[in-house]
């Protein structure tokens, strides 16, 4: 069975032929498109290391069959930084030491970008922790992660205010 997909990956249209409907989005990205930023931790939806944005929403790439996503817009960690440098969430993770080994970090950052777009956590650390609970960190960098997300929330809010002014 040969299936042709058209995907917008990090702003670039890609025509992708796959020969097997079993391929997950995570395997497609890592094994066929050389985008190894999204990590495979558990491969079962339990750790969040594979988090990417699909049509602007954070999801677990390991549980999504690629074939179901024809026409989707996918953003991975590789597509986050802009021409003028790191995304505010990336910068905040560095500033607040939101990691140790870094394995969970692409997933944490993509999840945080999704969380900030959802807009349900505000500046409440408790809500940030709760809404980031789909991302595990074996190094236990949670404190820095929470601070980074709160800091990025402030930065993005300030930018939004400047843009509005």
């Amino acid at each position: 069975m040969s299936l042709s997909l058209s995907l917008n990956i990090n702003g670039q249209m890609r025509a992708v032929d796959i020969d097997d409907p079993r391929i997950t989005l995570l395997d497609l990205l890592r094994e066929r498109l050389e985008l190894t930023g999204a990590k495979k931790g558990c491969d079962r939806g339990q750790c969040g290391a594979c988090t990417v944005l699909v049509d602007g929403k954070r999801i677990n790439a390991c549980l999504a069959l690629a074939v179901t996503l024809d026409g989707a817009e996918i953003t991975t960690i590789e597509g986050l930084a802009g021409e003028d440098g790191l995304h505010p969430v990336q910068a905040a993770f560095i500033h607040h030491d939101g990691f140790q080994c870094g394995f969970c970090t692409p997933g944490q950052i993509m999840s945080a970008v999704g969380l900030l777009a959802e807009g349900h956590a505000g500046d409440d650390p408790e809500r940030v922790r709760e809404q980031m609970s789909g991302n595990l960190c074996r190094c236990g960098a949670y404190r820095g992660i929470t601070e980074a997300v709160l800091d990025a929330h402030r930065t993005l809010n300030a930018t939004a205010r400047e843009d509005a002014a």
């Binding site: 939806g45 969040g48 988090t51 929403k57 954070r58 999801i59 677990n60 549980l63 999504a64 999840s111 999704g114 969380l115 959802e118 809404q131 980031m132 609970s133 789909g134 991302n135």
Partner: peptide, 9 residues
């Protein structure tokens, strides 16, 4: 239930 990522799907 589940996580924010899973609830989106």
């Amino acid at each position: 239930g589940a996580s924010a990522q899973l609830r989106n799907v």
